[in-house]
Write a protein that binds this DNA or RNA. Structure first.
Lengths: 229, 229
DNA sequence: CTTATATAGTGTCACTTGGACACTATATGC
DNA sequence: GCATATAGTGTCCAAGTGACACTATATAAG
């Protein structure tokens, strides 16, 4: 049995927070202000503060708040990325989180020197990213796409009241292809997750019903995947 | 930005390894030889050795090998359990793994003083367990049941060649209810994951076709759940 | 006011895949 | 041979999604 006093790895937390902006799936990144990877873009995260953070989830929320000023609408563990090589400072273990939020501009509301910004996934190829963050983002993206097939998780990319059309667009952006409005409406009703409100107009056309998440409901997992996948 | 030198949490790895023995879903536990929770049963795991373990996955395998003499047929990350209270030695972050293996007796092959043993899930209620390991086991059990609904992952609880009847029994044990043999056969064929061999007899009856996992195949994820769930 | 058009929502049928269950196939033991 | 036990197939039904036509209601142009 191991005793205390062993060399421990560096434990950190990273957040992959997604939002939809102008029909594009975007991820929140911060520009690093210190070595290593100085001035490279990276996932908002950092070391846990055992005095402050009740658990790793709380740590993830705090890091997001501090580095970007945003609070995730949805947050779950993704997976651990680890190894001796991934961080030049030493053996590193990083727990990546996967988060969703309605799009909110972020450029000016951060007090610290670090710069935060939303980046469309499509533009990441040409962006210098720190550590193995490119791979982490890719894993998170896959998870998001998977969940969009068997749940309505993408609602967390929308404001508290939204229309079916908006949700359809968000899901299509995440999946990268079109889905049937009819199928989506069937799921919205079958899930029982939502309540109705008044009306609202969209760009020229019939007014759309506004939906709202019932407080405290769990996300329904459907027994079949959507989108013939 | 955090600097090095911060107090780091204790990072550990735990394994929830399942097998089927005599029609019962069992989990592999070891009796603790040190404080805290001396003499309580616990998940095989421990501290990472940054000199030896290439990553957390390798650490999990090493711990299983050292403490139980077994090598998992399947191993994946479950999730992190963390907090200031879960370990009296200090703020603790534990990455739990979820593992499957064909049942193998384990009592005598361990060299160390720690004692390892398979425990049926049904008997855990009356067993004193260390830390929050009861909750971790429960989470792993849920994950296993979920995966059994949309994949043939339970094959990793069987020897390298097996019959449809055996797989059916394993899945039924995991789910705690019966499934249709016909449905299972449809999935086995549709997955393309298996190849055939000769024959084999079961207790009085027609000989059953023996199947074998194709080397290097990925586990198929079906687009619908099985077992009307 | 009428009409074109754009978006919201419904009706309906086909297709896919699991559930149910009867039926056939092949082994063992009496 | 016959009973029985397990293996495997044939077939119909049920549930949920895809496709797509059709209806409903808003705005804008003439």
């Amino acid at each position: 049995m191991s005793k205390l006093g062993f060399t421990q790895p560096l434990f950190t937390v990273d957040n992959v927070m997604f939002a939809i902006d102008q029909g594009q799936l975007t991820v929140l990144l911060v520009k690093r202000g210190i070595e290593p990877y100085l001035a490279a873009w990276s996932l908002p995260g950092g070391f846990i503060d055992v005095q402050v953070d009740q658990d790793v989830q709380a740590c993830a929320r705090r890091k997001l708040e501090q580095k970007t000023g945003l609070t995730p609408a949805y947050l779950e563990q993704l997976q651990v990325f680890s190894g001796a090589q991934r961080d030049p400072r030493g053996y590193s273990v990083s727990l990546a989180f996967f988060a969703l939020v309605p799009y909110t501009p972020v450029s000016s509301q951060i007090s610290s020197a670090t710069q935060a910004s939303w980046w469309p996934l499509e533009q990441l190829d040409s962006l210098p990213l720190a550590f193995d963050h490119r791979e982490i983002i890719q894993q998170a993206h896959q998870r998001l796409q998977q969940k969009a097939l068997y749940s309505l998780l993408p609602v967390f990319c929308l404001p508290s009241t939204f229309t079916v059309g908006q949700l359809k667009t968000v899901i299509e952006t995440i999946l990268g292809r079109e889905i049937q409005r009819k199928s989506l409406m069937r799921r919205i009703e079958a899930s029982g997750m939502f309540i109705l409100t008044e009306h609202k107009q969209a760009s020229g056309g019939r007014q759309a019903q506004l939906y709202q998440l019932k407080p405290g409901v769990d996300i329904t997992h459907f027994s079949r995947n959507m989108g013939n996948a």
